[in-house]
Write a protein that binds this DNA or RNA. Structure first.
Lengths: 226, 226
DNA sequence: CTAATAGTGTCTATAAGACAATATTCC
DNA sequence: GGAATATTGTCTTATAGACACTATTAG
């Protein structure tokens, strides 16, 4: 009765590499744009997916092997001309993963590209989707715990601050940063665990409180206003 | 090749009535849930809509007659059981309109219900969608110009402050509010235009600067933290 | 000891909130 | 003038940023 709409999901998988946000691209297995590097994505499968979120997690698992990644819905992109096959709709998700976890999973065909400065064209409207994801992540980073998902399970406060700075692209006052982290109340000390081996005072290791594995902690006032 | 996914849009049209956010509901013309009050929505029509946003604006126009309403994408809701017809996906939008504009359009069958306390069940997952919309709107209201779209074309600062307070559900400091509005730089005085006729000092009338008709102005620091 | 970086104390600057004084209208 | 509300001035309080001081490690 209605000409059908092509329903897909796309995932903007972000990680930190060389002190910059990078996006994971994979060669497309099928037409259109076969062989071109693009965001991991695929059809929503009504038979197996319980939601578009499930579809996005499935795509991530298939492409990277990762099964436990922080993921949030970004937005839905649609129109008659974004896909040469016809009127299409893509529910885009962004995902954050520490670089070593991504590399440990050994994904086939993965290329990492600077997310802020791609340097080459992407098929479909994937460049728009990446741009929207970076904007969203930067914005959320300024007032939430989102960047912790780019760190591994354990990290020191100076390491976490560096991650925030790399995501936001600007330096953060050390005292303010530590005050905010204390106020957000999302970290717990790992008693006795210190980062050792360097010629300076060792740093305390922290981990995320379990209740924030899937949720974010937010503050009313941004980290680096102005 | 793939069992098709039912693609729809739903609109959470919000307005202020009796000093509270209200959501516009309409009786469903078709099955399922024929006759039940629900969010205005409908199929995405690949033949005529250029995007899901267009579809949402079309639905709004068809149900209310309104053609110029502030609208933003909320999120996409999906799954096998939210619609009895099968695996479905709805791109939800929220829209803001001043009550008098809505009433002037004379929409047929409209019912307004408290958006924060619906009082009765909605079909599909529309209750979830309304809840998400109210959450988003309240959140954005605290650091952006979003509530101005609930005022008419001209308004005084005390009127606008009342709108913000009704959206947020809490009082705002008058001096802080006026400072924020000045800082956001989104209003312009209408020279010589004052709200007259009452036994007190008349208030200056303002209007939105044209560049903010479709965009929002935002501040780093929320209006009423804590 | 020195170099290096972690962690903290404290002063200053900025922005929000409280409160009150002044302005302007209708009656 | 009195009541009512708009608008503005200013003091207090809360939060962010700058800067420097102390702590702890390796060598």
């Amino acid at each position: 009765m209605h000409p059908s709409v092509i329903c897909t999901v796309d995932v903007v998988l972000l990680t930190l590499k060389d002190e910059q946000l990078h996006v994971a691209l994979f060669p497309r297995a099928n037409q259109p744009f076969g062989g071109a590097f693009a965001l991991p994505g695929g059809y929503v499968r009504a038979q197996e997916d319980q939601s578009t979120r499930d579809a996005a997690l499935r795509v991530l698992r298939e492409k990277t092997g990762l099964t436990s990644v922080f993921t949030e819905q970004l937005a839905t992109f649609s129109g008659p001309s974004r896909d040469p096959r016809g009127w299409s709709l893509s529910v885009a998700y962004y995902a954050l993963v520490p670089l070593d976890e991504l590399e440990a999973a050994g994904p086939k065909g993965l290329q990492l590209h600077s997310a802020t400065n791609l340097g080459f064209a992407l098929p479909f409207d994937h460049a728009d989707i990446v741009k929207a994801a970076v904007e969203r992540v930067r914005n959320k980073a300024s007032y939430s715990s989102l960047p912790v998902h780019l760190c591994g399970k354990q990290f020191t406060l100076p390491q976490l601050q560096a991650v925030y700075e790399q995501v936001l692209g600007e330096p953060i006052n050390k005292v303010s940063f530590r005050r905010k982290m204390a106020e957000m109340n999302l970290l717990e000390e790992i008693p006795g665990a210190m980062e050792e081996g360097r010629a300076n005072r060792p740093a305390q290791l922290y981990q995320l409180k379990p209740q924030f594995t899937d949720r974010l902690s937010v503050t009313d006032r941004a980290l680096n206003p102005g």
